[in-house]
Simulated assay, not measured.
Amino acid sequence: MRIGLIYDVFEDYPWRDGEPSDADAEYEPVDTVDALAGAVEALGHRPVRVGTAFDLHARLQEGLDIDAAINISEGARSRNREAYAPILLEMADIPCLGSDALTLSVTLDKAWTKDIVRAAGVPAPVHRVYGGVPDIDPDDVPPFPLFVKPRYEGSSKGIQPSSRVDTLQELRAEVGRQTGTYGQDVIVESFVRGGGEYTVGVIGHDPPEALPVLQRAVETTTGIGLHALEHRGAVEPTEEWQYELAGDLTPELESSLQNLTLRTFDALDCLDFARADVRVDTAGQPWFLEINPLPTFAPDGTFAIAAELMNTPYDDFLADVFDRALRRLQIG
């Protein structure tokens, strides 16, 4: 089969004057596209490198001939941006691996995602949504410390040490910074402390399978995940970050984190692959933070690390992920 690859690499970002330095943080290195192509070839199929959702739109008009597609395209600026490629593929009657447009749009919205998973019984921190500083009601602010991040972004965009706030004055300053810089609402949620930060990958469907849990380092002063402070385009520290591995990843905790992630995956109708971030408090209670059904497949990313822990070559791992998805679509 001819399997189309829909993606945004760093050089594809359509920069505009005045955009933040991390605007392209969700895009991918070419190595990621090479990994996707290698996995498709390992399955005996032919990868067709289409490019961005806008490239897909143009090539469909020209009669693009593909049997299915793997989409990791993020788009830009719109809260519907992750739905561009899946909608075009759906309209063209081309099967697409991974979650559909509705799930991608909902999960990009951090506030709606929290509402849905809480309704499904998944523990998630209390949150508020602010469109600007005037929206902050001092009598309706969750207990400090709090964490502030853009509502419709991923890959830690917008996060820096000031994102964790301990006072009303700091909250106002951070809400003003982020809404002014990113031109969108922010979500403000209780900051979970004490038991560490973890990420959990999921692959497959009916039933989905949770991968080995990965523990993340946290910066010692703020308690923010180190990966969130070191993302592409982040503010450079004046000196090297100090960090620690807070908490203890026991077999019991790993099982609990995996179960929580699978419940979240199901509640949001995710398909084929996703990655969730979870924090644990001082009492050992896990709290869902967010889920990404368009996770990076970079050769040094979460899924590659999980494959290494499973003693599986990365090409073979990705081939298995995509083969399961093709069989779900009944075209494998």
Rank of each mutant, 00 (worst) to 15 (best):
I6Y: 02
Y7A: 05
Y7R: 07
D8A: 10
G18N: 04
E28I: 03
D31K: 14
V33M: 12
D34N: 09
L36V: 12
L36Q: 09
G38N: 09
G38C: 03
A39S: 14
A39Y: 01
V40E: 02
E41D: 07
G44H: 14
H45T: 07
P47M: 12
R49K: 15
G51K: 11
G51H: 15
L60D: 08
D65I: 05
A68H: 00
A68M: 04
I70Y: 03
I72V: 12
S73M: 02
E74P: 03
G75M: 03
A76Y: 04
R79N: 05
L88E: 04
E90D: 13
P95A: 13
P95I: 07
C96T: 06
S99C: 14
D100C: 06
S105I: 07
L108W: 05
P125I: 12
V126E: 13
G131S: 13
D135I: 07
D139N: 11
D140C: 04
D140E: 09
F144S: 04
G154P: 01
S155Y: 03
G158C: 05
I159M: 09
S163K: 05
R164M: 08
Q169S: 15
Q169D: 15
E170A: 15
R172Q: 15
A173G: 11
R177E: 13
G183A: 14
Q184L: 12
Q184C: 11
D185G: 09
R193Y: 08
G196E: 08
Y198I: 03
V200A: 01
G201E: 02
V202T: 05
D206R: 15
P208L: 11
A210H: 04
L211H: 00
P212M: 11
E219W: 08
T221V: 14
G225M: 09
L226K: 08
H227I: 10
A228L: 13
E230Y: 00
H231T: 05
A234T: 00
E236Q: 10
P237S: 08
E239R: 11
L245N: 05
E252F: 08
S255L: 09
T264I: 10
T264V: 15
D266E: 15
A267Q: 12
L268Q: 10
A274H: 06
A274R: 10
G284C: 06
W287D: 06
L294D: 02
A298W: 06
A304W: 11
L309T: 02
T312Y: 01
T312I: 06
L318H: 05
A319F: 04
D320G: 03
D323H: 14
R324F: 07
I331M: 06
